[in-house]
Simulated scan of single mutants.
Amino acid sequence: MEPVYLFNLIDQQKSWLSARQSVVAQNIVNADTPGYRAQDLMPFSRVMERGALDISGADPKHLRPSPVETLAAAIRPTEGWETTHSGNTVSPEFEMIKAGEVRGAFTLDTNLMRAFHGMWMSAVRA
Rank of each mutant, 00 (worst) to 15 (best):
T33I: 12
E2D: 14
L17T: 01
D59R: 10
D59C: 12
W81C: 07
T33K: 03
M121R: 11
S86V: 09
R114A: 15
P43M: 14
L41P: 00
E95N: 09
E49Q: 15
Y5N: 12
V29H: 04
R103C: 12
A123G: 11
K98R: 13
T33Y: 10
K98W: 04
L17E: 00
V24Q: 00
H62Q: 13
F106P: 00
M1Y: 09
D32T: 09
P34M: 09
Q26A: 15
L53T: 12
F94M: 14
G57S: 14
R64H: 11
S122Q: 15
T89Y: 07
A123Q: 08
A74V: 02
N30V: 12
Q39E: 04
F116W: 08
A52W: 03
F116D: 01
Q39M: 13
P34V: 13
M42N: 01
H85F: 12
G104R: 05
D54P: 01
S15P: 10
G100I: 11
E82A: 14
P60F: 12
H62R: 06
S86R: 00
F106Y: 13
A115L: 11
A72G: 07
F44M: 04
N30K: 06
P77L: 15
T70K: 09
L108W: 10
Q21K: 06
Q21S: 14
R50P: 04
L112A: 15
V23A: 08
D54I: 08
G100P: 01
L53G: 08
M42G: 00
M113E: 09
Y36M: 10
F44Q: 03
P3C: 08
S66R: 04
A25P: 02
V102R: 00
G80K: 02
S18Q: 01
M1E: 08
G87T: 04
P3E: 05
T78G: 05
A74C: 08
P34G: 12
M1R: 01
S22H: 04
A31I: 06
N88S: 13
L63G: 03
A99Y: 05
L41C: 10
T110R: 01
